[in-house]
Design a protein around this nucleic acid. Structure first.
Lengths: 214, 214
DNA sequence: ATAAAATATGACAACTGATTCAGGTTTTAT
DNA sequence: ATAAAACCTGAATCAGTTGTCATATTTTAT
């Protein structure tokens, strides 16, 4: 849960070690508080209480409740991206990368449930940042699929459509199996059956063509 | 935009034609208001103003702002389900049904953008009803896939996982292409390229196997 | 050591928005 | 036609929030 943000241009960036520490504490507290109570139910009071500072301190580093949400969204986005990238480098081809990526995403969500809530709720507080989050993600995803298509690892096709479809697929599987169905969270291979199902979809489709069956 | 709800057990069900009319007006106004402003930004005042009644009238038929959201979610769910079912009956097999279903979903979302917003926002107001909405949907979906598997129309596999994956896929494609990218909304075949991409995924997978390429 | 700068405090002003209520109006039933 | 029931009204209440500010404390620089 370390918070890795550098360049806050807000009211005043902290100019002291203490200030930086306090700002970070507030950011972490906000993530936890938004995560458990939700953006609207969470008051600035709740955040500062969780951070162990006075209400007024909040406004030394953030101009508003909305601003801290924006910063959190970007922060969490970076962390997730970094995590996925790290988990996927070992993949041989795109199909393997998709499998490892899905597994890594599900695991990350199970470990950081706040990510989901903060991000999804941001949608209704500041739609632009939500759109940007996913458009950015989709752009990178599309590029990777295009590269894979060029290499002959996947079929030709509209990779932008595919990118959105794949993001949605991961999103809902995460919602259901990483967040709602509690069990999982434990064993390392908890999400394997899901990954296998999707892997089969990617490798063989859904149709029962002339080929072998699952 | 007709509102087809029958059994309100709320404070008092309307006992007069006038009452029923007023209640319906409020429900429609709430859908529009939540849809355009969002649940939190929309005040009861906004709803009653849109409905052309006094604030107090709201509480003659609904106990709270939250309750009307719940009713809207169920209402919209029923309507969407009915629409999809109607658009899919003509399908020969499951694969065709998936294609027509996706197309119908995208079209419905483009025509009724409030559905999306109300439903998604409900998640943070009353998570239970959101879960129930999707769990119900997933149950029906899974059953259909199981039936299709028995008939040999699709490969064997975990159809619950598939159901969630497919819901997510539709959801995100809808978000991106039916709601964010405005153009579309016009022509009847506006979503055909998307459906084709997904159809190819279902029929051939993503991998470039020995088979022909897209 | 000490003045200046940075941080922290927490009470409070200013406001928002949901819900209530006492009383007026319309509809229904006789 | 008229009393009772249903419905409607909107000002007032009430709970809760965000963001401000004058003051106190801590840190930094000399």
């Amino acid at each position: 849960m370390s918070t890795t943000t550098q360049a806050p241009q807000s009211p005043g960036a902290p100019k002291t070690a203490r200030g930086a520490r306090t700002r970070a504490k507030i950011l972490v507290a906000a993530e936890e508080t938004f995560g458990s109570l939700g953006y609207h139910r969470a008051g600035v009071t709740d955040i500062t209480r969780a951070a162990g500072v006075a209400q007024g301190t909040f406004y030394t580093y953030f101009t508003s409740k909305e601003e801290i949400l924006r910063e959190l969204v970007m922060d969490l986005g970076h962390k997730l991206r970094a995590h996925l990238a790290a988990q996927v480098i070992s993949s041989g081809d795109r199909l393997e990368a998709e499998e490892q990526g899905l597994r890594a995403f599900l695991q990350y969500l199970a470990d950081h449930p706040s990510l989901y809530r903060v991000l999804q709720e941001a949608q209704f507080v500041d739609e632009a940042i939500y759109q940007e989050y996913y458009e950015t993600f989709a752009r990178g995803y599309t590029d990777m699929l295009n590269a894979a298509a060029r290499k002959g690892e996947i079929r030709a096709g509209n990779n932008q459509h595919r990118a959105w479809a794949l993001m949605g697929l991961s999103h809902f599987l995460g919602l259901k199996y990483a967040l709602w169905d509690q069990r999982a969270k434990q064993g390392d291979g908890a999400f394997d059956p899901i990954v296998e199902t999707i892997s089969d979809l990617f490798r063989n489709g859904l149709a029962l063509n002339g080929r072998d069956k699952g």
